[in-house]
């Protein structure tokens, strides 16, 4: 019962956050300099007032701000994210078109960082000062200090330019044609470097978290009891320590997962990955308001969904957690 109430409260909160984000972004972006009609006219090579006014009317840019906002919220409620002024297609279409690429990239990066991070962290916690411990310490220091886009560039330099092992740009070989296994392998080859670049930082974060969390759990009574009962070390680690130590890590990771989309802007730019992040940046430079708003909304929803899922999973898996927090 408590869980249900908790979930309901989270959902209400989520709706308010989404509404808040729509309003804040809308105000920010509409008040920004740069007129999308002027840009389009500029790109058409020649401009006059009549043409600009025509474009403005065409895209509803001549209506008062509050009317535009009202219309926008109303449309969003019906999952209509408006029309991209620049690309002349519905924003939702563009986002859904780019979504798989971003979900693939962030999903793989997330699983990679979480899996490898927990593994390394667990190894490191088994013997403080051992090789794994030193390794994650150094790795974490390096990952915290490396600009993510620069890491991407250096990987391109090494694996694409010098060694020629991996493709530097894009998601699939152009004109690569047919689907099937060959296509999947092709995408996997393209995915390797971006996912590694995006995941490395979080991998270091999760490794350190896991390590700290495990050290803490090891000190707790139930582990000491288990040790006293003479259970073998690995079983204690697996059955008691890991399970209890990993939960907060997963919770934290869920909270961070949405932010991977933010990091994806940089990674997608460097690797020419055709996802949401790249779309956001292009939209920004072209002052494509509706598109940018749509992307923002989408990222925010992703963050919230991740958070809620994590919260729920957390409460379900670990009944000791007080959900009322």
């Amino acid at each position: 019962m408590a869980t249900l109430e908790f979930v309901a409260r989270r959902l209400v909160w989520a709706v308010f956050v989404i509404l808040g984000i729509i309003i804040v972004n809308f105000i920010l972006l509409r008040l920004a300099p740069g007129d999308p009609a002027a840009i389009m006219a500029g790109q058409a090579g020649a401009t006059d007032e009549q043409y600009i006014a025509q474009l403005r009317a065409q895209f509803g840019l001549d209506r008062p701000l509050h009317v535009q906002l009202y219309t926008y919220i109303f449309d969003v409620a019906r999952l209509d994210l408006g029309f991209s002024a620049r690309q002349q297609v519905p924003v939702a279409d563009l986002i859904f078109q780019r979504m798989p690429a971003t979900l693939l990239l962030t999903g793989v990066a997330f699983l990679f960082s979480l899996g490898v991070g927990i593994l390394l962290g667990a190894l490191a916690s088994r013997r403080a000062g051992g090789w794994a411990d030193s390794f994650i310490t150094v790795l974490a220091l390096a990952a915290y200090a490396t600009p993510i886009y620069w890491l991407g560039l250096m990987l391109i330099l090494l694996f694409s330019v010098w060694l020629g092992w991996l493709p530097a740009y894009g998601m699939a070989t152009i004109g690569g044609g047919a689907g099937g296994l060959a296509y999947s392998l092709d995408v996997a080859r393209h995915l390797l470097m971006p996912a590694l670049t995006l995941g490395l930082f979080y991998m270091a974060v999760y490794a350190r978290l896991t390590r700290a969390s495990m050290l803490e759990v090891q000190d707790q009574d139930f582990v000491k009891t288990a040790k006293a009962k003479g259970l073998p070390d690995w079983r204690i680690t697996r059955a008691h320590v890991l399970r209890n130590a990993v939960l907060p890590v997963i919770s934290y990771a869920g909270f961070q997962a949405g932010h991977l989309v933010g990091g994806a802007v940089l990674v997608e730019t460097v690797f020419g990955w055709p996802g949401i992040g790249r779309l956001a940046f292009d939209a920004l430079l072209q002052r494509d308001y509706n598109l940018l708003l749509g992307v923002f909304l989408f990222t925010a929803i992703m963050v919230i969904v991740f958070n809620i899922i994590t919260d729920i999973v957390y409460t379900l898996v670990d009944p000791r957690i007080e959900v009322g927090r």
């Binding site: 300099p33 740069g34 007129d35 002027a38 840009i39 500029g42 790109q43 430079l285 072209q286 002052r287």
Partner: peptide, 11 residues
């Protein structure tokens, strides 16, 4: 400036 601002300011 981005393209929009540039166009607006020059105009």
């Amino acid at each position: 400036a981005d393209a929009g601002t540039w166009a607006e300011r020059v105009a």
